[in-house]
Design a protein around this nucleic acid. Structure first.
Lengths: 136, 136
DNA sequence: CTAGTTCCTGTAGCCACTACAGGAGCAAGC
DNA sequence: GCTTGCTCCTGTAGTGGCTACAGGAACTAG
């Protein structure tokens, strides 16, 4: 059994975040020591690590909760997981595309920004009509 | 002069967001009609549109406030703007790279997810040691 | 026994909005 | 002039996913 500090180290989840996950019911409440300190088993730490990895993959907490419930009663879970992962991939691709377009826009804006004139062409273009309304 | 609804339409900024910007001092308080309604000039609407476009480009409000102050006393503004835009480009590139790595990880995880077995290989991999801790 | 570290609860803050509730103003049609 | 329905007003609270205290209790090493 491990205290919250060790659990944090081993799972990569911040101590405050672990307590937050507990408050929100994202992970179940651990046992306590005689003095009232949280005590985590290896399984509970694995679950925290799982949550952290899913978060690193960009999944929102709501999806992760579904994942966690699927791991407990795991019949037909794989198909559902695949669908959610693929939906998430679509979102990630959209984000990448957006960022790439945004990068292009910003590059073309700042390219004119060298000439040392008083009025900045970039801010100027953003103030005027007709720019960038296709960015969303 | 335009009411907040028209200002919202013309600038692309949500009505509630306009009021939020005013509360936070991001844009200055507009005049009011006899009945107490906000009245916006074309200039004020242009400023709102400017803020919206900068937000669409991913700039945080704090940077946009600097932009706005630079547009008023615009000496040497262009160099500063360029630096901020380039820093922002660096951030955007980092985000894109992250998302691409993340997409790879997710693809390789869900690839094994077809075989109809009870235990999902993807969730399995995320539970076990040794995966994905390089995703930060 | 003491000093330092870790842990506890509870609350507030972060960003940039968004969503009400409950009421007032206003424009058009009858 | 009156109703209907839209827009607007203020104020407050919620969103997601944490993060940062404050003020105190418990454990650990020397």
């Amino acid at each position: 059994m491990f205290t919250i500090g060790k659990a944090s180290e081993q799972s990569g989840v911040n101590i405050e975040t672990i307590r937050y996950y507990e408050r929100e019911g994202i992970v179940s409440k651990p046992g306590r020591s005689a003095g009232g300190r949280r005590l985590y088993s290896s399984d509970e730490i694995a679950k925290l690590r799982f949550v952290r990895r899913c978060r690193d993959l960009g999944f929102p907490i709501s999806i992760i909760q579904t994942f966690l419930s699927l791991t407990t009663h795991s019949d037909r879970s794989c198909g559902e997981v695949k669908v959610m992962a693929e939906n998430h991939l679509v979102e990630i691709n959209a984000k990448i595309e957006n960022l790439v377009r945004l990068r292009e826009a910003l590059l073309s804006l700042s390219k004119n920004c060298d000439d040392g004139t008083a009025a900045c062409p970039m801010l100027d273009a953003l103030m005027k009509d007709g720019f960038g309304d296709d960015l969303r």
